[in-house]
Computed example of a mutant assay.
Amino acid sequence: MRDWAKTLRHASFRGVPFWVDGEDPEVGRRVVAHEISGGDASLTEDMGARTKTIFVEAYVAGDLADVAGHALERACGAPGASLLILPMDAGETAHCLSCSRSRRKDRNGFIAYRLEFMKAGGAVAFTASGLGQLRTAFDAGVAAVSVLIAAQF
């Protein structure tokens, strides 16, 4: 029997780590329906693939949850696409479209996030090397925090 816990990757965006409670990638086709006046049938036209969107229920936890949460928010707010790594899928370049924080008073040390990413398309100037990730994280102002948080994983 497969040990899933050992095969899943640690999640991160711009090199900033987080935990994943759930992920919902959304793919499909762009289809237009042409409804003909006076007709009983419509014509459909396939316009190509939709841009992949990924919704992630993420969280940070522990004594440094506040620091980790701010690092994740800064990484999500930085311009441009970067490497998104999720537990089940291979890493891919994506833009963070939204980052919504949810903190509850009875769950101190735990901060939940609802993240929305869109797969980057076209010519994306990004390197997936470790040095490239460190540079990207540093540019987002979170390099020092990432190193501290990585010790928790």
Rank of each mutant, 00 (worst) to 15 (best):
H34D: 12
P17L: 07
R135P: 09
G69T: 02
R74D: 01
E73C: 10
T53D: 00
K119N: 02
I54M: 01
V67S: 07
S82L: 02
E45Q: 12
A81F: 05
W19L: 14
L43R: 08
R114H: 13
G109A: 07
F13S: 02
A120H: 01
F117C: 09
V67I: 05
V27R: 13
R50S: 12
D106Q: 14
S129I: 09
L86I: 02
H70F: 07
V27T: 15
A75K: 12
R50W: 02
A49D: 10
R135G: 06
G109C: 08
A68F: 06
G22H: 03
S129H: 09
R74T: 07
T127N: 13
G69L: 04
L97M: 11
A94L: 00
A123E: 13
G91V: 03
A128F: 10
V27K: 13
L115V: 03
G15K: 04
G132I: 12
W19H: 13
F126E: 13
F13I: 07
S42L: 10
S100T: 14
D24E: 13
A65K: 11
D89H: 10
D40G: 11
A49Y: 01
V124P: 07
A61M: 05
R114F: 09
A128W: 06
R30P: 10
G121N: 11
D46Y: 08
A33V: 12
V16Y: 01
V56T: 01
L134R: 15
F13M: 00
A49Q: 02
S12K: 02
A33M: 15
S37A: 13
G15T: 02
V124C: 09
R29P: 07
R114A: 01
D66C: 06
L64K: 05
E116K: 10
F18Y: 13
E92F: 11
V124D: 07
A41W: 03
G38Y: 04
D21Y: 12
L83C: 01
E73M: 15
G132R: 08
V16W: 07
H70Q: 13
H70G: 03
I36T: 10
A33W: 04
D106E: 14
F55Q: 02
V67E: 15
P25N: 09
G130P: 14
D63T: 06
R30Y: 04
G80H: 09
A78R: 01
R29Q: 14
D40E: 10
Y59I: 04
G39H: 15
A49P: 06
F55W: 06
P87Q: 11
A33R: 10
I54L: 03
R50M: 03
D24I: 05
T93H: 08
T136D: 08
S100V: 15
L64D: 14
A49F: 06
G48H: 02
V56F: 00
G38I: 11
S42C: 08
A78T: 09
L64N: 05
E116P: 03
A41P: 04
F126W: 10
S37T: 14
R101P: 06
R104S: 14
